[in-house]
Structure formats: C-alpha cells, structure tokens
C-alpha cells in the first residue's frame, strides 16, 4: 500500500499538513496540487467534525463566492480574512524573494514571465504563504533573483502581517525562518537525497546532517485523497484529476 504512494500524493498530503489550522485558503486558478492539498485538509476537518475550511479558487466560477469583482480577494486579504495562499516564481532566492517577471536585465528581460499578479501585496498580508515550485533546479532556486516581484522579508517598521512560511518542491520541504532570515531543509522526499538537493539549489540553507524523509500519508488519509478529494478535484481540474488517477493505477501495478 505505502509503496504505491505517488510523488504528487506526497506533495498534496504535505500541503494539507502545512495548512493545518487555517480557516480560509486562497488558491490560484492553475494550481491543482495546492488546491488538492486544501481540499484534502477540508475533507480531514469535515471528517473530524472540526470547524470547516473555506477554499477560494481564483478565476473559477464554481468556487468563487466573491461578489465584488476581482478586487475582493485583495480586500479580503487586507482585512486579514485569508489565512493562507500559494506563490511560485520563475526564480526564488535564499531570502525568499520571488521573481514572476523575468530573467536578465529588466525591463528587456531575456526570458519574460507573465508578471507579478497579486504577489507584491498578498506576500505582505497573508500570514501563511507557501512557496510551491515542483521544478527544483539551480535555474529556479538562485542566489539572488533578477527582479523582486515581492520581497521575502521587510525591514522593521514596514507593515507586514504575512510572508513566507514554507517552501515545497519536488525534492523536499523547507521551513522559512524570518528572523535569520533563510530556509531550513525540514525533510527530503522519498527517492531524493540531501546531496541532490544541495546540488540543485543555488542558495545556502540550513539542514541537519541527516534530514528526515518527508512523511507519507497514512492509509486513511490516502483513502480520503483517492476517494472524495479526487472527485472534488475533478470538477475544477478534470485533466489533472485524470492524470492523477492514471499515476495511482500505474504505481499500484508497479508495487
């Protein structure tokens, strides 16, 4: 059973753990893994009879309960009503600065990405921002970003009720220490190693000599994820849900 857990299921279960305790989480329109993690948390809380978890999926008609246009999400965050959000980045550096704009000299970036979207605001006012980027390579995790869409830390005196909480990649999980500031490797996903992560990361980070392996979801959580959560996910991300089902079947065959 455990042998057949897929890498994506580990990411989803890890996100649900990182979100534990939040009441309202917002997720980008094209972020199926964070959405799945939030949906898993919602299902776990519902099963435990705990306070319900509210999920806002941006750009989705079905999962959008806002009635004041696209400004309402930001107003809601400014009021302190959004507990967690996800950000990625073409580049992320060791100070948790993120770059969603482009590589090379601004403004004539050699590689141009879509833009900063709401990051330059939400990073400041959402308490638990989870940085999520599956690709874990030195071109993503750089010493210093070429453009700061949103800074990881602010000097004293700057109004800041939010910021980076964790960084989750395809290889491992990091926590962010705002005081130091910097990342600390918390765990390494099964099939990867500390050496591989050091090699793939362009910035220095703290770590134990032998960091633990990222926890696998227990069978009950896995059953919830493969059942009702995947059905929920199907409504908003049908292609992704179908892909997950194929991966799960393939992993079961291989085991």
């Amino acid at each position: 059973m455990i042998a057949s857990v897929t890498p994506r299921e580990i990411l989803i279960a890890t996100i649900a753990r990182l979100l534990d305790g939040v009441h309202h989480v917002a997720v980008g329109a094209s972020s199926p893994i964070p959405a799945a993690g939030a949906m898993l948390l919602r299902a776990l809380k519902a099963r435990a009879g705990a306070e319900p978890v509210r999920i806002s999926i941006l750009g989705s008609v079905e999962h959008n309960f806002f009635t004041n246009g696209s400004t309402e999400l930001f107003d809601c965050a400014g009021q302190g009503r959004i507990d967690a959000f996800f950000l990625g980045g073409g580049q992320i550096d060791g100070q948790a600065n993120i770059n969603l704009v482009g590589a090379g000299d601004y403004p004539r970036s050699s590689v141009r990405w879509p833009g900063s979207f709401g990051s330059a605001y939400l990073y400041f006012v959402v308490p638990r921002v989870i940085l999520f980027r599956e690709e874990h390579t030195p071109r993503v995790f750089v010493e210093k970003v070429d453009f700061i869409s949103a800074p990881g830390v602010s000097r004293p005196g700057i109004h800041r009720t939010g910021g980076p909480y964790a960084l989750l990649t395809g290889k491992g999980l990091f926590a962010f220490d705002r005081a130091r500031p910097g990342f600390r490797l918390e765990s390494v996903h099964p099939g990867h190693s500390l050496g591989e992560i050091v090699e793939a990361t362009g910035f220095a980070f703290a770590h134990d000599a032998a960091p633990p392996t990222t926890a696998l979801p227990d069978p009950a959580i896995l059953a919830l994820l493969r059942g009702p959560v995947l059905d929920d996910l199907q409504e908003t991300y049908p292609d992704f849900a179908a892909q997950m089902r194929r991966e799960i079947a393939a992993a079961a065959d291989a085991a």
Binding site: G78, V101, Y106, P107, S116, A120, Y121, L122, Y123, F124, V125, F147, I148, S149, A150, P151, S154, R155, I158, H159
Partner: peptide, 13 residues
C-alpha cells in the same frame, strides 16, 4: 493608499 509593495522592484520601477 495601498499596503505591500515596499522593497519590491515593482515599486522601484
């Protein structure tokens, strides 16, 4: 007025 932005290259530009 708007919160956030301070320390970003969005504001710097």
């Amino acid at each position: 007025p708007i919160r956030g932005l301070i320390g970003s290259d969005v504001l710097a530009n």
